[in-house]
């Protein structure tokens, strides 16, 4: 029941965001608010068992959302800009030595794995190929593999991220 309510509330908020500016009750008209409530309840009833599959309400805390916003505007954005300079240079010069390495970040929740896989894909020269759900090991395709990363069985965080420790941020957000 709690998961249905949470999913319905989230769907209602997204609907309100998409229809802002339609009337004069704050920003919305009454018809849009009623339609949003009905649609939110339907979506919540249909998809709650899938959306809140862990049954854990820790993401309802607003502090985690604030941290997620700071994370995506700060460290993640800097890494994205670095990634683009790096890949642009690779495109122009054509110097690459690709390879797939193993990496164990120690993150267990599904949302954490999703965020980390997305972040890895958007950061310099790395692309998540496969995630082993049982052990939490990431298989990462790198555009330029170091000499020392080739010989090691399991890579460290510092081999993959240069400036920020992104797994620590994600651990704080999602667990």
């Amino acid at each position: 029941m709690k998961s249905v309510a949470a999913t319905a509330l989230l769907a209602f908020l997204v609907y309100l965001l998409l229809t802002a500016g339609s009337g004069h009750v704050l920003f919305w008209s009454w018809a849009e608010i009623v339609a949003g409530l009905v649609i939110g309840l339907v979506v919540g009833g249909l998809s709650a068992s899938w959306f809140c599959s862990s049954g854990n309400m820790r993401m309802a805390h607003p502090f985690r959302w604030l941290l997620l916003a700071i994370y995506s505007a700060g460290p993640l954005f800097v890494e994205i800009i670095r990634a683009n300079v790096y890949v642009s240079i690779s495109v122009i010069t054509g110097n690459i030595r690709p390879g797939i390495v193993k990496f164990n970040p120690g993150i267990n929740t599904d949302l954490g794995k999703l965020l980390l896989a997305t972040s890895i894909t958007l950061t310099p020269g790395t692309l998540t190929v496969e995630v082993d759900d049982a052990t939490g090991v990431f298989y990462v395709h790198m555009l330029n593999v170091d000499e020392k990363a080739v010989s090691k069985e399991m890579c460290d965080t510092s081999d993959i991220f240069a400036f920020f420790n992104l797994p620590a941020w994600i651990w704080r957000i999602a667990e």
Binding site: R97, P98, G99, I100, V101, K102, L114, A117, T118, T121, L122, L127, T128, V129, E130, Y139, H141, V145, A149, V150, E153
Partner: peptide, 25 residues
């Protein structure tokens, strides 16, 4: 980002080996 992850996983499952120096998968 999610679509790229899905495509790379599918390409590996379809049997396309990456060119490169190391392959731990």
């Amino acid at each position: 980002a999610l679509g790229a992850h899905a495509i790379s996983r599918a390409a590996y499952r379809a049997g396309i080996k990456p060119e490169g120096v190391v392959d731990r998968l």
